[in-house]
Every structure is written in structure tokens, then in C-alpha cells.
Design a protein around this nucleic acid. Sequence first.
DNA 1: GCTGACGGAACGGAACTCGATCATGGCTGG
DNA 2: CCAGCCATGATCGAGTTCCGTTCCGTCAGC
Lengths: 219, 219
Amino acid sequence: MARIDQFGEDSLGQGRQVRTEPIQQRSAARLSGLLDAAAAVVDEVGFDRITTAMVAERAGASIGTVYRYYPDRVAVLEGLRERAVQRFRQRVAENLQTAKPDTWWEAVDCGITAFVDLYRDEPGFRILHFADRERAQSSTPDQLDSGFFAHQIAGILSQEFGLAGGPDLVFHLEVAVEMADSLLSRAFTWNSQGDERFISECRRIMHDYLVGYYGPAAG
Amino acid sequence: MARIDQFGEDSLGQGRQVRTEPIQQRSAARLSGLLDAAAAVVDEVGFDRITTAMVAERAGASIGTVYRYYPDRVAVLEGLRERAVQRFRQRVAENLQTAKPDTWWEAVDCGITAFVDLYRDEPGFRILHFADRERAQSSTPDQLDSGFFAHQIAGILSQEFGLAGGPDLVFHLEVAVEMADSLLSRAFTWNSQGDERFISECRRIMHDYLVGYYGPAAG
DNA sequence: GCTGACGGAACGGAACTCGATCATGGCTGG
DNA sequence: CCAGCCATGATCGAGTTCCGTTCCGTCAGC
């Protein structure tokens, strides 16, 4: 399962949005504290009412400290989003280790479960769905968009479960990721525990869609 | 086709976000000019970098005029979004009049085509995808969310094409609307004309999903 | 001329900067 | 080996700038 382990690792390298890499011990804690604060504030007041002052106060830091690490308000949200992505990938890797899936479908299902669990437990996780289209307008595709996910998943499914790799697989997985993201986000829009109807419908749709191209998930 | 006509009408009543109903002739033009300006600015600088000053300047109006019609910055975006929704519904109604579909699938396909066409031609149409989740966090469901769409479409499909109505139909259509919205938005994220692969895959998925519940689209 | 429409200076608050100050931990000399 | 020194990273928060919003004086339609 070499490939699966790799999926969980931090291959993002902290991204471009951090102004100063933390050198001393305490500042690493500061940085994650800032993100924890941002996550809490996002859940409380919402995505566009968040202020840098709120984040600073919640983290027990000053305004200046926020700007030491992030160039602007939006970058804080992006940092939060990046951490959420990392935690999602880590969770998927853990689930795969635990469940030891025999079929590609079980592996995909692990991904859906990880997403649902994080939506329930991880403060600010809803940021994942939001940020991404807005960024897309101005910048170029990067490691946080659905296409990157699709590549990663394609690697696992073809190497570990023998699905035919190539651009078609990546495309179908990107379509699947987009659909799953929207349906699961919808499940949590009016219901903090997730509307079970949308969640199970999402699983069924993902299954049927992929089976249509790759056949029943044999071992 | 009584129901189809109704779908295209303005049953939204201009919404709550307009401060002052235009009384004089010129001010109606002002109002739509403000929205045109907002649409242009959204396409240029993006959704969260838009400023009231930009909108005013682009519209050849002053700041005060913007606030005469809209209570705040967000309301301008909501107004833009509402107009986009109205135009979408109008376009769907036109397409239905023209195409005179014989089957429910052809009717659904009209909706997809309308959405794609507007994404291509209508400035600021991408706002449709954005605003809706953010509002959801704080307020209650309203006429602009996917559930309301689903209700409208369910009415047409059951009355005009004899699909079994009821909450299941509404639910399936809401799922379909969510998926279509995300896939079509993705089609236009990196490609201003819309990535044809995502568009046609969207049509296929919608078709297969609904056929799975309601059988082949007979006349 | 009355009432609605408009302009833009002024206000308040939030984003962001910057130089003073504090803390850390590697280094050095005993 | 370690005590204390000091270069440099980290923090703070008052100040600045920019932007959303108000408000009232002026202009235009009916």
C-alpha cells in the first residue's frame, strides 16, 4: 500500500500563503492556534463576517501576529482550507489503513466516510466547499482543486485495485469529486449532523456512476 | 402548458433587497444599470473584491445612488443573483416554448441548455453558484435555493409529463439540481466557453439518474 | 413648488503597517 | 559543561489607509 501511505503525507509543503515560515518552537503553535481560532470564528459568524480582529482575539494574539503569518484576511481562510485538505487526506489514509478495502468501491466509500466524519467533527471544515471556486477565477489550477484530488485517487485506484488508469479515469473521478462535494455540502447546509438522505443518495450515485464505467467492484 | 408559462413569470416580486421601488422612469434604468455594472465588476475582479465604489463608478452613478437602492454591499450581489435567477427561468420558459418537448427528459435538457447558454452570455451569471451556500449559513431556506427550483421543476414534470409527484420527486430533483449546478460551474471554471466534456457528461448523468427512478422518457 | 433622485463630503470601523519591545536559543569564554 | 550574552525571531498595538455606509444639500421630473 505504498501509494496509500503517500496519499496521507504532507506533500503540499505548507503552500504559498504563509508569509513567514515559523522558526522557533512557539510560533508553530501560534500558527495552528490562529487557524483553530479562524475555524471557530467561521463556524460562529460565517465565512464573510470573519474579521482579523476576531481571529486575533480568539487566538489570544494581537493583530500584528496575524499579519506576521498571513498577508491578508483571505489568506487566513486559505490557510484554514489547506489544513482542512491535509486533514482530509490524512483521514482517508487512516481509514484505508483500518478498513483494508478489498475492492475499489470500498476504497471510494472510505473517502466519502472520511469527508462526512470531518464535516461533523472538524470545526470550520465547511470552508472546503466555499473557497475553491472563488480562487479559481483569478489564479491557475493548483493542488487544492478537485482535479488534483482526482489525480491522487486515480493513482490509488489504478495501482492498488487495477482500474484502467489514464486521463479518462482522472476525468471521471473529477466529475465524481465535484458531485460528491456538492451533495455532501448540501447535506450539511441545513443540518449540522448531515442529512442522511443526501449522504446515502450520494453514496448510491457515486457507486452507480463509477460502476457504469469500471464494472462491479471485484476484489 | 399553463404551468410552463407560470415558471417563466416573475413570481418573486422583486425581493426584499431593494430599498426603494423606482417611481420615476429614469430610476428603473438606473437600477438595472447598477446591476449591469455589478455584473461586469464581478466578472473582472471577482466576487469578494467588489466594492460599492467600483459599482457606482462603472454605472456612472455616485455612491449615494447605490445606497438609495440597496441597503448594503451584499444586497447588490443578491440583487444581481435574483436577476440572474429570473433570467434563467425566463430562458427556460422560452426554450420550452420553442422546443415543445414531448418527453420529460427533453424538458430537463432544455433547462441544462438554458443554464449553459446563460453562463456563456450573461455577465456575472457565475454569481448564481456562489452566493447560495453562504446565505444558507445564517438565514432560512428561501425561493432562491435549490429546493425551490426543485419544487418548480417537479410541478412541471408531474403536471405536464405525468411523472409521479410528491416529496420523492422533489428530493430527486434537488439532488439533480445540485449535481448539475456543480458540474456546469466546473465546466466554466477554467474555460469561459464551458468545457464540453463536463457539459455532456452532466447531461448523461442527469439522464441516467432520473431514468433510474422514472423510467425511459416516453411521450 | 413638491417630491423623488442624485451627488459627494464626512463618519465609523475594519484591514493592514511599522517601529518599539520581548523571548529564544545558539554560542562563547571561562 | 554551563552561565550568561546577544543576534534574531516573535509579539504587540497604536496609527494609517481604505472602504462601507450615512446624511444632507442640491437638482430634476411631474
